[in-house]
Simulated assay, not measured.
Amino acid sequence: MRWWPALQVLALHFVLLMGLERKVALPERVALYPAQLLGLLRPEVFTEVGPQALLTGTYLLGGLGLAWLLVTLLSRWARPLLWFMEGIPPFLLLALGVWAGVTFTVARGLDFPLTPWSPVMLGLYTASLALPVAARVALATGQVRREALDADYTRTARAMGLPEARVQAQARRVALPERAAGLGGDALGLALALVIMEGLLQFPGLGNSVYLALQGALSGAGDTVSSAADPLAQQTLAAALLLWLLLGVLATLFYQGLAARLDPRPRSGEEVH
């Protein structure tokens, strides 16, 4: 179904928003939802969340792109090291990077840029998101590549005199769809990790707005963030949530489509040459 992903996003958005607005009676929350959903079209709301979406999207897509490049490098590392790397929380890597930057620059009288668009922070964010998922995908693609090299068709190709370089190249090609599918499967999780990272550092991305709302709701102070008497705050939160989900889902769909395109097996209706 062509509209199924959009319906899933709206359903998740509805559930999340209803959970955040706990200070408002449930019937009122449901009645206000259409206006909150359309709030993204208001200029004052879009002016608030548009730059946030641009920043968050840059971090997320940069991390996924860097992870794609890192998989090839990490696939040569020992599996125990990859098992360790995939379990490292992205925020811990970011915190270590910020600590190292502050230690070796500010302490020596130099400037350590903590502004969201600085190259240092862009690099730290994307690397923090990329390393754990790249290690996880490298483990999966390495397994697929080894299975391809051990398959009967590979042994037959070698017996018929196919050069080893061609055999290895074909095995890597077989593993490419697994790389794309693995990154697509992690895209929404990376978006959630980004929410936490932006919120804790109070970077002006979508995660900061969402994280503040979550923090207020969990602490019982949700009415300071979302109140029935403040429709602009409600619409801003709804827009930030929606754009955050859309970024994660669009990245997922992109890599799922890429995995299908990279699959070397013939698709239905195609001729095998």
Rank of each mutant, 00 (worst) to 15 (best):
Y59V: 08
L73S: 00
V30D: 01
A78K: 10
G62S: 11
F84Q: 00
G39T: 12
F91D: 05
L41V: 06
V98M: 13
P80D: 05
P80V: 03
T56P: 04
P80Q: 09
L32R: 15
L60S: 07
A53N: 03
E28Q: 14
P89C: 07
V49P: 01
Y59C: 05
A25N: 11
L20M: 12
P34E: 01
K23L: 13
L96A: 15
G65Y: 00
A25P: 01
P34L: 07
V49W: 02
P34M: 01
G62F: 07
G63Q: 04
G97T: 08
L26R: 09
L74A: 06
G19P: 04
A25V: 11
W77L: 15
R29S: 06
A67G: 09
R42N: 10
Y33V: 06
V102K: 13
A67W: 09
G57M: 08
L37Y: 11
G39N: 11
L41M: 10
L66V: 08
L32N: 12
F84W: 08
L26G: 02
L55E: 00
T47L: 14
G101D: 04
V71P: 02
V102H: 13
L82Q: 01
F46H: 05
T72W: 15
W77P: 02
F91N: 08
L93K: 01
L55I: 02
V24S: 13
A67K: 07
Q36V: 08
A100Q: 12
W68T: 13
L26S: 05
E44D: 14
A35V: 03
M18Q: 14
A100D: 09
V102R: 14
P51H: 04
F84L: 14
L82T: 01
P80H: 02
V45M: 01
Q52C: 11
E48D: 14
L38V: 09
L64K: 07
P34A: 04
L64F: 07
F84N: 01
L92E: 02
G19Y: 06
L70Y: 08
W77R: 08
L37E: 03
E21V: 07
S75Y: 08
R79E: 12
T72Q: 11
G57D: 06
L64I: 09
W83F: 14
R29L: 00
T58Y: 14
K23H: 14
W99V: 06
L81T: 04
G39R: 11
R42W: 11
T58M: 15
L61N: 10
I88V: 15
L32A: 15
W99I: 04
T56R: 03
W77Q: 08
E21G: 10
L93E: 03
M18L: 15
G65S: 03
L69S: 09
G65L: 05
R79Y: 02
P51K: 04
L26W: 14
P90Y: 03
G97C: 08
L20I: 14
R29G: 05
R42A: 15
L70M: 15
P90S: 07
L17A: 08
P89Q: 02
P34G: 02
F46I: 06
R29H: 05
